[in-house]
Amino acid sequence: MSVLRHAARVAWKDLRIELRSKEIVYTMAFFGALIVVVYSFAFPVKPDLVRAAVPGMLWVAIAFAGTVGLGRAFDRERENDTMRALLLAPIPRLAVFLGKAAAISLLVLLVALVCAPLLALLLDVDLFAMPAELLLLLVLGAIGFANVGSVFAATLLKVRSRDVLLPVILYPILIPLFVAGTSATEAMIAVKPDLDKLWYWIGFLGIYDAVFLVLSMWVFEALVIE
């Protein structure tokens, strides 16, 4: 269990730095809010139209703000080459991956929790009809995003064009996750909520997260070592 202990140490270090500067949280949350506001101007606010469009808005906002936060979180490890220090430490490299992914999951979840109420407020949709299910959905989405995101952001650390390559790599892999999140949210806020559909997509996300977590754990070390 030393893997988990060290992973917690790595994650806690990230969170402590973030708690001190709050840079990523504030900018990510603001960026997410901006996207939401831009959306509310980009589409006519009509009840049935909004109901159809809000799930997509929520998940696209998560995707964009998440990518920005992910890039910045790994920029921090690049500044003084501290990623090398982590990989050099006598802890399983798996722990480095798990720690980073856990910290980033939390950040992404936080942004989702800023965007969702804002969408509900500005566009007057009842996103919180099923709060527990929505939270579960957002948690699963954040974990999946952070997990795939951490693997590739860590590998891209020394690549010059990492900022453009990060979405180029991430989004094709993450499309099923975003579609699942959107479809589940849709089922949740429909006039007549479709529970079968909702749980199908939550299950889909659960399996997606599990499969890619295993894959990430398996290839992380091979990817980050030059």
Binding site: R9, R20, A85, L88
Partner: peptide, 28 residues
């Protein structure tokens, strides 16, 4: 392994004491 490279391998946001405490934790 002890490494001393171009870059400091220390977190800019943490103090010297905190950086060393983190290292001590990772190396037990």
């Amino acid at each position: 392994i002890g490494m001393l490279a171009h870059s400091s391998l220390c977190y800019a946001e943490l103090s010297a004491v905190e950086n060393l405490a983190l290292t001590a934790g990772l190396y037990e």
